[in-house]
Design a protein around this nucleic acid. Structure first.
Lengths: 214, 214, 214, 214
DNA sequence: GATGAATGAGCATTCATTCAT
DNA sequence: GATGAATGAATGCTCATTCAT
């Protein structure tokens, strides 16, 4: 017991090392990309030396893959949340898209994860595949579920987008891309974008006679 | 005819070399990214040796930048076309988005250009800036012009998206990203996506009483 | 003893490496000059590989500069010795020139240092400047000091060379140059040269009536 | 005849080409040394292209060697002049050293030739050997001839330097080296140096009683 | 004679990886 | 566990040299 206490700090440190390394790796890979990041850069950021990295991770490739895993919070939670939404289906779709914005646009990890998939995809096909299964498929399913339920409830019309929910929700991606490109230099008004997005896919652009859709 | 003879084989060759090299560079950079592409890879693809590449381009960086310039067809044409669209504003917005799909989703050059901007942006900030000026700004302007004209004509309601046209048109980007990621492995039904996209932003999702929005 | 053990083989090695490398660099640069010497040549001579050189020295330029520093034993010692000379001023000037021969003509490091200054000066202007300050200026001063003291003591006449001591001592340089050029192939009789040099500047060439100057 | 006149200019040009190239080569090799000078640099200076250089000179090595030959004006003239000197032997030695200063110190070609011998000697041993035969041996002989004649005439004492004339004349080299090193930055007073040199070797440093040697 | 496109050997430098301490 | 000296393959870039035009 006393031994445990004595070693306490060091042991904790040790247990955290892999985490620390993965987080440092994330920052470095974000800054320079896979090829241009040196293992030593990661080590310096953690405050250790190259050798230590290799003690925990076989190769630079492995380090990258594990880093990707580490920052990947599968889509499950959004799917789960999506099921618990309350209110009208319009409200539900609004909340769902809200969740997406918080993830895809606002959450740095998720945004950079997407960038990694785009930039290093050819070098790490498994990463692309995993991303497809863990994020894109569940995301599409969750979206379709809400839309279909909305149709069944008579609140939504049976629009073409019910089968292809990306067509309704996809604007999210444009904002995400703008963020990736210009995050720093040309800040976006995310809230306004979000409201405009939800508004347009719920009511459309065409002015209706009689009832104004606005 | 006489011109061809005057030029001679060698001269012809020389005139084409830069083009050939830039196209080979495009393919290689697409496949492996900037850092991982060796100048020699580009040379082999053209069927020459390293030295020849350096005869035409000072450095690898320059080669990349010139390649980007070479595949960049500024947005001007779309803006121009956008002004000549005929029919109702619903028709016009449909045609406009159609043009976008042809460019951003279907045209490989433009798609990969976007990927380069995303992947190599930190290494080539000028490329990002140029892309913003030549593509994104004109694109947003063209979109806003149509929407505002549609509102002025009374055909469109004064939706929030009129000020933020990306919110209406942005789904395009999601399809583009899907293409970048899975073009080969998970083909998309671009036509269906397009139709669903146009349908949803014109009519919205909510079922209208009395008049069915579809 | 304990120190040696504490250091360990590896530590000892490491402490000596820079020295070893600098000495190998000296030999290689002497043999081939800066441009024609390959970093790998230096490595081979030490018995390591290229990478090791770069572990200790940032660039080939730095390696050269540090090597120059390493072989440069500033002139301070000669100046110091010059002050402690005893005997008549004729004796003193004789001893002083003797010191110079030992350095400029006989000492390989100093001789090659001069050659480096001549051959690589345009590439390394700082090296030329440092050489001027550390060698040439102190050398001239020390020489002038002796000559002036000799004049003050009435032993030397107030010859023009008192203000321009190089004119009296400069023959040293010719022998040094002969050494640089033909050291191996046409050996010089340094002693005879030295004696003739001292003799001629002390007594001159002209036969004096009455007292034979010899 | 008319043909000859028509071609006149071109033919002249052609005949001068090798000369022009050699002179351009001299300037470039002086500026950068053998290895760092590119054949194309030489070509540009002449206003032609690489190929032309290779039309006249087989290789870069040959170009260098021929350039050395081109700027080498053997010592013969000095030897010849030395024989025609008039006046006392003191006068003669003065004139002889004067000739040396004009050549070794003041004449850029000769000075740079010496530098080439020093810098590229290991790469071009024939150049060193030729230099020895054409310059150094005749120079020593001419010097010894005067000194010995002066001794025979009873004007010079039979100093040690008569056998080793470099010991008397060698200060010239120190000034030459100073010129090579600092020509631009620290100008030398060549005349004063020359006078001091001649003065000291003729009269020596030691104050003679009775007759002041000055 | 002159050109300049093309070649390819050569070299400085980087960096993932190993391993003795 | 951690270090960091050492390795060596890899790659950007240069330049002497060639040769078809």
């Amino acid at each position: 017991m006393s031994t445990e206490k004595q070693l306490g700090q060091r042991a904790q440190r040790k247990a955290q090392r892999p985490q620390e390394i993965l987080e440092a790796a994330f920052e470095e890979f974000v800054e320079r990309g896979y090829v241009a990041t040196r293992v030593e850069d990661v080590a310096s950021r953690v405050g250790v030396t190259k050798g230590t990295i290799y003690f925990y991770f076989e190769t630079k490739e492995r380090l990258f893959e594990e880093m990707i895993r580490h920052i990947s919070v599968p889509f499950a939670d959004i799917s789960a949340n999506a099921k618990n939404l309350s209110g009208s289906y319009s409200e539900k779709i609004r909340m769902f898209i809200r969740l997406l914005y918080d993830r895809i646009v606002m959450d740095r990890n998720t945004r950079e994860l997407l960038r990694f998939v785009l930039t290093e995809g050819s070098r790490f096909p498994q990463v692309v595949d995993r991303h497809h299964e863990e994020f894109i498929v569940p995301f599409k399913k969750a979206a379709r579920d809400i839309l279909e339920a909305g149709v069944a409830a008579g609140e939504f019309r049976n629009a073409l987008a019910v089968k292809i929910p990306d067509a309704a929700i996809g604007a999210t991606m444009m904002l995400s891309v703008w963020q990736m490109l210009f995050a720093d230099r040309k800040p976006q008004d995310v809230e306004a974008f979000f409201e405009a997005h939800v508004d347009v896919i719920l009511h459309g652009l065409i002015a209706k006679d009689g009832a104004d859709c606005e």
